[in-house]
């Protein structure tokens, strides 16, 4: 298992303790803490999971084992920051941050990848129809398809107007 980090269509900004990544393909932004960022940077297609664990122990002077690396890889895979999908071992598929913290005894040893979906400009504009959900045009007020694409003034079949509050 030799994971490789994705490089295409990404904007990467390295901070002192964190790394910010914007995925141009999916319009998602990620914040990697120092553990996750270090693992991601060292995923070069020729470093094994065991070697990544050794790197963590040396770099951060902290207890780290394969479980930390697998947790990071699972999060990076979910965030689509790896070049290819990886097969997670069965006993690491459900290993949570909480389990790791209990075992290793230090919250700082846990890799964290936080993700948001970058909003569209229209999602920010005030007073969009309360019934609009993402790309679907559905008016919750009238329980019908929104006739005005979720903008104010959508109508039900009786001609009544939703005021979209």
């Amino acid at each position: 298992m030799l994971p490789r980090c994705r490089e295409d269509e990404l904007i990467v900004r390295q901070l002192s303790d964190e790394t910010l990544v914007y995925d141009l393909k999916r319009d998602k932004a990620h914040c990697l803490n120092h553990i996750a960022a270090s693992i991601w940077r060292h995923c070069d297609g020729s470093t094994s999971v065991a070697e990544l664990a050794v790197m963590l122990r040396q770099q951060f002077q902290m207890p780290a084992d394969d479980a930390v690396v697998w947790l990071a890889l699972r999060q990076l895979q979910t965030a689509r920051l790896l070049e290819e999908s990886i097969e997670l071992p069965a006993d690491h598929r459900r290993c949570s941050r909480r389990t790791l913290i209990r075992r290793l005894g230090a919250a700082a040893a846990v890799p964290i990848v936080m993700t948001i979906l970058a909003p569209t400009a229209r999602a920010q504009a005030s007073a969009l129809c309360a019934g609009q959900f993402g790309n679907a045009s559905f008016c919750a007020m009238f329980d019908v398809e929104c006739t005005n694409r979720g903008l104010m003034g959508c109508m039900d079949v009786g001609g009544n107007t939703c005021d979209c509050r």
């Binding site: 901070l15 002192s16 964190e18 790394t19 910010l20 932004a29 914040c31 803490n33 936080m114 909003p119």
Partner: peptide
């Protein structure tokens, strides 16, 4: 800093 920038986005 990183989380703040993410939340601001």
């Amino acid at each position: 800093i990183g989380r703040a920038a993410l939340q601001l986005m």
